[in-house]
Design a protein around this nucleic acid. Structure first.
Lengths: 229, 229
DNA sequence: ACAGCATAGATCCTATAGGAAATGCGATTC
DNA sequence: GAATCGCATTTCCTATAGGATCTATGCTGT
C-alpha cells in the first residue's frame, strides 16, 4: 500500500477523507467545479489518486453544507447557483441571525475582539478587487472573517451553528465570482460603523448597524444581479 | 440484492446507508444509545448486519446534526447531553429564529396550514404523557411537527436550514427523555395562541406569541433541570 | 429517415481484506 | 505497592472487487 504518511508535520494526523474534503472545497470555491456539474465518486477518486471510500465520506459531509446535492443511486452534483430571489432570501435569513449575533457579541466584547475586527477591516481595504478568483478570494476571506468572528463571539454554539448553516457564505462567493468586487467602499464603511458600536459597547447600536449593513448588501446584490442580466 | 419490488410503491429503492441512518437515529432518540457512549463502526455494522461502508456514511451525515461527535482515528461517540446553560443557549437561539419564522409564515398562511397546525395541537392533546420513551415520542413528534410546519411555511430555505441546524430539537428530546412530559398544558395553550394569530392573519401577533411560547419553554425547562439536580 | 432495441461502458453501492493506530491488560521493575 | 513497558486485541481507515443500475452509442427494422 502506498500509504506513505509524511511524518513531517507535527500534527500530521489527518485522515484522507479530510484531505479530500479540503480538495473538493477548494475546487468548489475556485470555480473549477461549476454549478450543476455532476461529481463522480469514482472519477474524483481517480483524479485525487485515492479510493472511492474517502471520497464518499467527504461528499456526505459536503452535502450537509449545501454545496453539493445527492440523489440516491444517481450520485452527487454541484448545487446550482442562487437565483436573485434566493439571494434575497439568504439576506433575509442573515437579517434574522446576524443582528442578534452582533447584539450578543457586543455584550462581552473585549480589546482582543475589537482589535481583530479592526484587522479584518484593514485586510478588506488592502485586498485586491480584481475579477479573478484568486484576487476575489482574499477579499471574500476578510469579509467572511469579520462576520464569523462576531458570530463566534456571541458565545452561543447554536447561533453559531445556525450561522454556519446559512453556508451560503460560500455560495455567495461563487455567485459573485464572475462579477468581482463592486461594493468594497460601502462594505468597508459599514463594517467600520459596526466596529465603532463595538468599541462604544453599545449593543443595541451594533445590532442596528449590522441590520444596516446587510440591508445594504441585499440592495446592492440585487442591483448587481440586474446588471448581470 | 433482490430489491426489484416496484409494485409496493414509489419508495421502492432505498440505499442501505439511509436505512442505517434511520436505525441510528431511532436508537439515539429511544435512548438505547446513551450520551457519551462510543459508537463503533465495525460493531454497528455487525449489529445491523451490513458492511462498515454504509455505517461510515451514515455517521458522517449524523455528525452534521450534532448528535454524534467524531475524533479522527478515534471513532465516533454519542454527543453529551446538554447542560442547563447549553439548554438556555438553545432557547435563546430559538428565540432568534422561530419568531421570525412565525412572522413570515403568517404572511402567507392558508386554510391548509392552519388546519394542519390545528391537527398538530389535537395530536398533542391526545398524546400520552407517560415517562416511557415510546409514549414521550408521540408527544414530542406532535410538538416538533407544529414548529417544523411553521418553519417550512416561512418559505425561506435558509431560515429552514438554520432551524434544522439547531438540531437540538432532537437533543432536547433526549434531555427530557428521562423526565417525561411536565408542561403539556402550558405548551398546548401557547400553541393555541399561536394558531389563533395565524387564523387572524396577524403576523406581528404570531411573532409575539411565539416569543411568549419559547420564553415559557425556557423557563419551565430551567425549572425542570433544577428539579432533576 | 426515424423509432425502438441491444449491447457496452460508466457509475453507484456494498462487501471483504488488510495495514496502521489506539486501547486494554498483564508483567516487570523500582 | 505503584509506575512503566510491551504485547495482544480491538477499532479505524483505506483499497480492491464485484453486483446492480443507469446512460449512451450503434444497429436493425419499418
Amino acid at each position: 500500500m502506498a500509504t506513505k504518511n509524511q511524518a513531517s508535520g507535527g500534527v500530521s494526523r489527518q485522515v484522507l477523507a479530510d484531505h479530500v474534503y479540503e480538495a473538493l472545497l477548494g475546487a468548489l470555491m475556485d470555480g473549477r467545479l461549476e454549478a450543476g456539474t455532476p461529481v463522480s465518486i469514482d472519477g474524483m477518486a481517480r483524479e485525487l489518486d485515492v479510493s472511492p471510500t474517502p471520497v464518499r465520506e467527504a461528499l456526505a459531509r459536503l452535502e450537509a453544507t449545501g454545496m453539493v446535492r445527492r440523489m440516491a443511486l444517481r450520485g452527487y452534483r454541484v448545487a446550482p447557483l442562487f437565483s436573485p430571489e434566493e439571494l434575497a432570501d439568504l439576506m433575509d435569513a442573515r437579517l434574522v441571525i446576524e443582528p442578534a449575533n452582533a447584539f450578543m457579541a457586543c455584550k462581552h466584547a473585549d480589546q482582543q475582539l475589537t482589535g481583530r475586527l479592526q484587522q479584518a477591516i484593514e485586510d478588506l481595504k488592502a485586498a485586491p478587487r480584481g475579477p479573478s478568483f484568486a484576487e476575489f478570494r482574499a477579499y471574500w476571506e476578510a469579509d467572511e472573517r469579520f462576520h464569523r468572528m462576531i458570530a463566534e463571539s456571541a458565545n452561543n454554539q447554536f447561533l453559531l451553528s445556525a450561522y454556519n448553516a446559512l453556508g451560503g457564505q460560500v455560495q455567495r462567493f461563487r455567485f459573485f465570482g464572475g462579477l468581482g468586487v463592486t461594493d468594497a467602499d460601502y462594505a468597508i464603511a459599514e463594517h467600520t460603523e459596526i466596529l465603532k458600536a463595538f468599541e462604544a459597547g453599545d449593543a443595541e447600536l451594533a445590532r442596528q448597524k449590522m441590520i444596516d449593513h446587510i440591508e445594504g448588501v441585499k440592495q446592492r446584490s440585487q442591483h448587481d444581479s440586474e446588471v448581470r442580466n
